Amino acid sequence: MLVQGVESQTIKRSMKKLILLTAFIFTAFLTTDSVKAQDGFFSNARTLEKGVGSVALQPVFLTNQDDFMFIIRGGYGLTNSVTGHLKLGLFEDETFFGGHFETALNNSAESNIDVAALVGIHSYGDLGLKLGLNLSTDLDAVSIYSGINYQPLFIENNTNHAILVPIGFDVHLNEGFDIMLEGNIPANDDARYLEAITFGTRFYF
């Protein structure tokens, strides 16, 4: 009974964090204007352990738009298989804001491939969604990842169906510090304006 009570309290705390994070995301959407940009995956497919946080600095070169954006990212392990992410992109006097949940689909220690699903929302003037499938594998201290990143953008009476293929390298320098390099390849015409090269660092705490 005691174990069940502890588990129940843990679940309630996790749900509260999920609700607060979601509420914060929607509140921020009501108070920000944004540019046309996207943040890619910027990570391998491994979710953070419960209670572990991260902060990342991510410069983004939007090659098709010939623009540059700087993104600050935060992540937190809500459970051992679910991570919440918030992102704020800075570009002159405008902002990009987004948030998503990342859920591990393959936690088997015997597998050499990690798989995670991403579901979120973002804003850069118009509201958009982020639906992704991330796959990664480790080669010593380097994770190689790729997948599909579908980002529909709702523009007045039209919907832009951008599909991107991120390909990236996540290099683990030590237990608290990674560096990343990622390219986002458009898979259809709607995604051409989101073509990007991004790199940066991530710190864990």
Rank of each mutant, 00 (worst) to 15 (best):
F154L: 01
Y193R: 12
F177I: 09
A116M: 06
Q9N: 10
I167Q: 02
I113P: 11
G99E: 00
V82S: 01
V115W: 14
A109R: 14
H85C: 04
K17R: 15
I121S: 10
L88H: 03
L129I: 06
G128F: 02
F70Q: 03
N188W: 08
Q58F: 06
I71D: 01
F97I: 03
T198H: 01
N184S: 11
G75P: 01
F177R: 11
L133A: 12
Q9W: 04
S108P: 12
N149Y: 15
V171A: 11
T201G: 09
S14V: 09
G40D: 03
Q4D: 15
M15Q: 14
F41N: 02
T32P: 13
E94N: 08
S108G: 05
I113W: 12
N64S: 15
L30E: 11
V35R: 11
G125S: 08
H100C: 08
K16W: 14
G40M: 03
V171M: 10
E92L: 03
P186D: 04
F154P: 00
I25M: 13
N44C: 08
A117W: 12
Y193V: 14
T32W: 06
T79F: 02
G168A: 14
E195T: 13
S43G: 02
A116G: 07
E102V: 05
L2A: 15
H85S: 04
V6C: 06
F42M: 02
G53Y: 06
A196Q: 06
E102Q: 12
D170A: 10
A116V: 02
H122F: 13
L127F: 05
S34W: 07
R46V: 00
D66I: 12
F26C: 04
V3F: 12
D39Q: 02
F68T: 14
I121L: 12
E195K: 13
P59G: 08
Y204F: 09
N112C: 00
N107W: 11
F203V: 08
A28T: 11
S54N: 03
L164M: 02
K17C: 10
V165I: 12
E110K: 11
K36H: 14
Q58A: 00
I163W: 07
I71G: 00
H122A: 10
I179E: 04
S123N: 10
Q65S: 10
E92P: 09
S43F: 05
N44G: 11
L48A: 01
F177K: 10
G147S: 01
P186I: 13
Y204T: 01
A191D: 05
L88M: 10
F24C: 11
I179A: 08
K36D: 15
T47D: 00
G40R: 05
L86I: 03
D189C: 01
L21S: 15
